[in-house]
């Protein structure tokens, strides 16, 4: 480790930095007022019922849009809510949430106006983002016929966002953790949702979990 030294932080940054701490103290005070034992209970451990996998986009904060409090939902967020089959980052999250926390539901939440999906639709060299965005282009390829058939640019973009969300759900169902837990416990159930930035509402993509899982297990079954 490098030996730590104190560096002055520019004033405007110092201010926004301090605001986080100030707001944090305000939040603590309001929580304590409502329930003096709030933090004591959280210290005892976490027992979330949900795992949420969503986009990093600042406009889609998991707890806020679902109306859930601290301690209620385990969260993974990356660019465009992807679940790449060989990504250790998301796979370790799913593993921990299913095998150790025994979550009952896994929610994949995409959102319209997703910059990550937009970037994947744009022919540009994005450097390190290329391999990541390629996953979204693969989703396009899987649904090429349907997407090419949509004339309207925005409608096509929106549909790719939905299909990308469903693809992430499918990839979750391919994992041994989910298949084995579901066979034993009938949970977790995987849900695909899209958040609409125009009205703040969640839309359930309503794919049939049982049917999809059955189809997946025909090829990907892991006993």
């Amino acid at each position: 480790m490098d030996s730590p030294t104190i560096q002055p932080i520019p004033r405007y940054l110092q201010q926004s930095h301090e605001r986080i701490f100030e707001n944090n103290r305000k939040w603590v005070a309001s929580k304590r007022e409502a329930d003096p034992a709030f933090f004591e209970k959280l210290s005892a451990g976490q027992t979330p019922e949900y795992l949420y996998i969503g986009c990093s986009d600042s406009r889609v904060p998991a707890n806020e849009i679902m109306g859930l409090d601290a301690g209620e939902v385990f969260v993974h967020r990356n660019i465009a809510n992807l679940v790449p089959n060989t990504d250790l980052n998301v796979m370790s999250v799913i593993n921990y949430a299913v095998r150790h926390l025994h979550v009952k539901h896994i929610v994949v939440c995409g959102h319209y106006n997703c910059g990550g999906v937009k970037a994947a639709l744009t022919p540009a060299d994005m450097g390190i983002l290329n391999p990541w965005l390629r996953n979204i282009r693969d989703v396009y390829r899987l649904h090429e016929k349907e997407l090419d058939g949509i004339e309207d640019k925005d409608a096509k973009y929106n549909r790719l966002i939905e299909l990308n969300t469903i693809e992430s759900c499918r990839n979750i169902m391919k994992t041994a953790a989910v298949q084995q837990s579901y066979q034993k416990n009938q949970y977790p159930i995987v849900h695909g949702w899209v958040f609409d930035l125009h009205d703040g509402l969640l839309k359930d993509l309503k794919f049939d979990f049982e049917e999809t899982l059955e189809g997946i297990m025909k090829i990907y079954q892991l006993e």
């Binding site: 944090n24 979330p48 904060p61 939902v73």
Partner: peptide, 8 residues
Amino acid sequence: SRVPETTI
């Protein structure tokens, strides 16, 4: 789950 960034 106990460390939701926007909330805290």
